[in-house]
């Protein structure tokens, strides 16, 4: 499991872990814009809350609400683990 201070991608985190968004590597313009619009910007703190029964998509908590994102998109979000 990734420890505090580790840099990884959002899909590496386990339920209950918190991280700060560092970078968005998504190249598809529409998807990237959608992630930004939903609040995943640099410096945002996100927490992994729930996982779908088959492991994908993953439910993250940010900005007072919950967003489910598929692993493929979470793979492209660089974060730094905070807890």
């Amino acid at each position: 499991m990734k420890k505090i201070g580790d840099k990884c991608v959002l899909s590496d985190l386990k339920v209950g872990q918190k991280a700060k968004v560092l970078r968005l590597n998504e190249t598809n313009k529409a998807i990237r814009r959608h992630l930004l619009d939903m609040g995943i910007t640099r410096g945002t703190v996100v927490a992994v809350k729930k996982v779908a029964p088959m492991g994908d998509p993953i439910d993250i908590e940010l900005r007072d609400y919950e967003l489910c994102v598929c692993k493929a998109d979470l793979d492209k979000i660089e974060v730094e683990v905070m807890g």
């Binding site: 939903m38 967003l67 493929a72």
Partner: peptide, 9 residues
């Protein structure tokens, strides 16, 4: 269509 899932819960 790009295959993606981003939706509010």
């Amino acid at each position: 269509t790009s295959s993606t899932y981003i939706a509010e819960l």
